[in-house]
């Protein structure tokens, strides 16, 4: 029974990882850019939520109403003003620029919020749990996290599969020049993709801040876990990303159960094993957009 509990907790943790991974894989799918500041931007969102909670007296969940549009606007601006200037110059410039952005975000957060660790208080729900019979119980909050992750993935799947904007994402990912001949302005489209990506990572950052403490330097770890979830699930598969997050979460909780220091390491080992045995990921598909 303790093991069932461990796996269940890992699965729920996977929901959070999938939230981090989705935005990353969307950006890579649409414009072949790896956003190295992804994790730091999620922490920025968490700090924005802290500000909203402390100055406006909002609840942690209510802060999402402000933080998500703010991060989306930031993503649109970042893409239009900075990253679009790097188009057509190879893969290295976006990596360098987002790496630089990651350092700028971390240090700005350190400057404003100091190195103290912070946490978002959602008002009691973080400790509430629901009993599943026997000795099994799951927290409401991890359950909500997983449900939100599934809902966001389903919404994104719908957007990419059925809506005009999603078709434009896929067409541009296939053949940017021909997409332009169809009237698709790729720069604006990339702006929208980045806005969507940061809106999703804002949710991830706020949920992280409710689940655990964070500091200005928590971003890079989030980026690493997001990468691992994307690779384990297979690039280009949204539901694969969810499974990738779940596999990573389960590996970490199972490892931590064996010995408290082994959690993160076990996650990395499972990731390496997937890279060795199935480098295309568990659910790789031909479709290339996340």
């Amino acid at each position: 029974m303790p093991w069932v509990d461990t796996v269940l907790q890992g699965l729920l943790l996977g929901g959070l990882y999938a939230l981090f991974a989705t935005g990353l894989s969307l950006i890579f799918g649409v414009m072949r850019i790896v956003n190295l500041a992804h994790g730091d931007l999620s922490i920025l969102a968490a700090f924005l939520a802290v500000v909203a909670v402390e100055t406006l007296g909002l609840g942690a969940f209510a802060a999402l109403v402000l933080v998500v549009p703010l991060m989306a606007a930031l993503g649109y601006g970042l893409q239009m003003l900075v990253l679009n200037r790097l188009l057509g110059r190879g893969i290295l410039p976006p990596i360098l620029v987002t790496f630089g952005l990651s350092i700028i975000v971390q240090n700005t957060l350190l400057e404003i919020f100091s190195a103290d660790s912070r946490r978002l208080d959602p008002g009691g729900i973080e400790t509430a749990s629901v009993s599943l019979g026997g000795q099994l119980a799951v927290g409401w909050f991890p359950l909500i996290t997983l449900a939100v992750a599934v809902a966001i993935l389903a919404g994104l799947q719908l957007l990419i599969g059925r809506l005009s904007l999603g078709r434009a994402f896929r067409a541009t990912s296939d053949d940017q020049e021909t997409a332009e001949l169809m009237g698709i302005d790729n720069r604006r489209l990339y702006g929208l993709a980045m806005a969507l990506s940061l809106a999703i990572v804002a949710v991830a950052g706020v949920f992280l801040g409710i689940r655990t403490t964070f500091t200005f330097a928590s971003g890079p770890d989030r980026l690493l876990f997001a990468f691992e979830a994307v690779i384990i699930g297979g690039l280009g598969s949204l539901w694969g990303t969810l499974v990738g997050g779940a596999v990573l979460g389960i590996a970490q909780t199972v490892g931590a159960r064996v010995s408290p220091g082994w959690g993160i390491l076990t996650g990395h080992l499972v990731f390496l094993a997937v890279l060795l045995l199935r480098p295309q990921g568990l659910f790789a598909k031909a479709r290339r957009v996340a």
Binding site: R170, A171, D174, D175, T178, L181
Partner: peptide
């Protein structure tokens, strides 16, 4: 060369 979008 047609340039059909292959994933659509």
């Amino acid at each position: 060369g047609r340039r059909i979008f292959p994933s659509l």
